[in-house]
Amino acid sequence: MKRIALTGGIGTGKTHVLRMIRRNGIPTLDADQVSRAVVDVGQPAHHTLRQCFGDDYFLPNQQVNRAALAKLVFDNQTARAQLESIVHPVIRRLIDDWFARCADTTSNTVAIAEIPLLYETNRAEVFDNVIVVSCAPKVQVVRIIKRDKLSAVDAQYRLAAQLPIARKIAAASWVVRTDGTNTETAQQVDRLCLALQTAQ
């Protein structure tokens, strides 16, 4: 089974494209769901995060305050490195386990996992191919502002914290652009899925 990563910049529409791929019958994994599960109450990473960052980054129901923690790590490289050292090894293991289960339990020849920081964490080489979801940076900013309720300055700051989308496109096996209509995006995804499912 081919292990394929789907990545892109913040606000490019990765999760939307992943849903479209899933509707085409290809097994997919949403990395955001994995990251939430890793830091859920009772998980080892949850306890480690509390020890590292303190109670200010936890909600009354004991869940991680993801918004507060996200703001901290975008503003503080040391905090970001601490967070990544805690959660990334666990996430990687869970993703590897998922690919192994797909290979054992499905007849599909490919499976796709969404890995938002694939290039930033130097993980591209462990996958057979990479799909990059892209759009113009100005579109990313508009989407980030709308989705995350951020100011234009904060949206630009978060965008700048990631590798430029042009560099990700240059390293990609396939690119899906989401600047156009939903129909145009769906057509690209359908062509991509057909190519993946018919490739030897």
Rank of each mutant, 00 (worst) to 15 (best):
R93F: 00
D40C: 12
A81G: 06
R23E: 14
K149M: 12
C102N: 07
A100K: 14
A171D: 12
T105I: 07
L59M: 15
L29S: 10
T12P: 01
I112C: 09
G11Q: 04
N76C: 08
I21W: 04
V34A: 07
Q43M: 14
A45D: 00
Q51V: 07
K71L: 11
Q162V: 10
E114V: 07
Q82R: 13
A70H: 04
T28L: 03
L118N: 05
A67N: 11
Q62T: 13
S107G: 15
D190T: 13
T181F: 00
I10P: 01
S134F: 10
V90H: 00
A124C: 00
F99V: 04
A68E: 09
T183S: 13
Q77I: 08
V189F: 06
A136W: 06
A103T: 11
Q200P: 03
A161D: 08
A155T: 09
A103P: 05
R147G: 04
I115F: 03
V153G: 02
N182Q: 15
A160G: 02
N61K: 01
A100R: 11
L59Y: 06
R123D: 13
A37C: 02
A160L: 08
M1P: 09
A70C: 10
V126E: 14
R93T: 13
A5W: 00
H46Y: 03
F99D: 04
D96T: 13
D179L: 08
P60T: 11
A170P: 00
A155E: 09
Q140G: 06
N129G: 06
